[in-house]
Design a protein around this nucleic acid. Structure first.
Lengths: 257, 257
DNA sequence: CGCGCCGTTGATATTATTCAAGACCAGTGG
DNA sequence: CCACTGGTCTTGAATAATATCAACGGCGCG
């Protein structure tokens, strides 16, 4: 992980001249991070953000396909996604793989380790990504000193639970079509909240991963995309998505039976 | 576990008003509660448990079929189940109901309110039940003063997330049969952890509720119970369950497609 | 260029749902 | 005591939804 990577990825890094050495060089600059409003420091005063910086570890870069952490790894930190996207995956005993989360910049990952102090699932980069490391020991200390941070953390835990409940509702009570629509609508909202286009985005998961995430087979996902495309709801070109008729999409999520 | 109800509530006056009845007398006695080892105070020193008592609200009694809280209610407290059993339910926009949790004594419920400060789901008693109330404001204060409590809470949050992930795995990748077996095996383990029989227990949910919980229809649940019964895996008599062949059950959970 | 992964599409099989009928059971009132 | 009632549970047959199997096209990459 401390591997001083051979090349810089930096789609964001200003000025090429800046340190090629390591991403750890600069601690995360929450104050200037685009995601500060939806990430951990949301609502913190400037001075508090400084305090928070004091406990941040170095950032880590995760190449596409590589793991931020694997199932069974000791729980040492939470991670805030800064750039890129990642998936949370669990492997059942018999080798079946299930995608349980799809994480965009600003999301906090790693919470699955809090219960047992070991990560129960693995997190893998879907593209070259970068995460801020928040060592858990330091975080707990800081939390005791900063009620706002404590509160933020609780909010984030709660949000995580709500997200999971949303997925339970999706998997437990929706048809294939509704699931995929809900997935698209949800993604749209999340991209919008992050300042990206709500109508045009690129999926970072294969059909198989999307299927696993939604409890469907990859063929079903593919067929549905084609269907939506034909019906003029969404333009689909491989992983490129352009939402054409959002109102009608929303109707589809809650159709009866 | 018929918890010495020496101080049970004086049956309230007729003309019942609120569905939730607070118990005036005794604060919860964690120190003597059968569930202390799996509940919030697990691992706390005796003096710490006393401190924890200081912030506990009154206990509440919830009659079968009534709500501990409803969706949309302001988030004011967490609740520890003391006696009985409850379900967590969400109602989707179009009126579909989905059971998302089945709670036994020792479980902490109400965490779904942490994200937005409103409960996103409702919790309803499946039988006459009793919960300890832990006001959230007091809890956050206490948490700052007691690292052990803070840590316990984090563990519980994490456990909750792991439980949800388990359900996601179940709903996302298991067949009907596997789901129902996993449900039984899980229940068995939870009853065992609480000092009850691991092989004989009574379901507190209807077939429909179980189906909702597992993403199946009630008829499917019924058929599968009959099938398991015929195969000598489980004796099923209405809601009475007696596990006959646990090893074979375990095999069924992870059968390859 | 050829190879491997990914995505699409069709035909078929399987699984679970839906619709329907009736049994069971506890509680209620005549 | 019995019949009645409403909710729950079981079971069967028909149906719909999704998975599976299979073939092929495309794209990126070494």
């Amino acid at each position: 992980m401390t591997s001083t990577a051979s090349h810089t990825v930096s789609s964001h890094a200003p000025g090429g001249a800046s340190n090629v050495l390591t991403i750890g060089e600069s601690r995360a600059h929450c104050a200037h991070c685009n995601m500060r409003e939806i990430c951990l420091p949301a609502g913190l005063a400037a001075t508090e953000i400084e305090d928070l910086h004091a406990i941040l570890g170095k950032r880590v870069k995760v190449h596409r396909g590589e793991a931020l952490y694997r199932a069974g790894a000791p729980f040492a930190a939470l991670y805030a996604v800064r750039i890129g996207s990642l998936k949370t995956v669990v492997l059942s005993d018999d080798g079946r793989e299930q995608v349980m989360g799809y994480h965009l910049p600003g999301d906090l990952v790693g919470l699955d380790g809090m219960g047992t102090h070991r990560h129960e699932s693995a997190v893998t980069a879907l593209e070259d990504s970068e995460c801020c490391v928040i060592p858990i020991g330091h975080l707990e200390t800081m939390e005791r000193l900063m009620p706002t941070l404590q509160h933020n953390l609780h909010r984030i835990f709660g949000r995580e639970i709500n997200i999971d409940h949303g997925m339970l509702l999706l998997l437990g009570s929706m048809h294939a079509e509704e699931r995929l629509v809900a997935f698209l609508v949800n993604l749209s909202a999340r991209y919008k909240a992050r300042g990206y286009s709500a109508t045009e985005f690129v999926l970072r998961m294969t059909r198989e991963e999307i299927g696993s995430y939604l409890g469907l087979k990859l063929e079903t996902v593919s067929r549905l995309f084609s269907k939506f495309h034909d019906e003029g709801l969404v333009q689909v070109q491989g992983r490129g998505i352009k939402i054409i008729d959002m109102p009608r999409l929303r109707l589809l999520v809650n159709r009866r039976s």
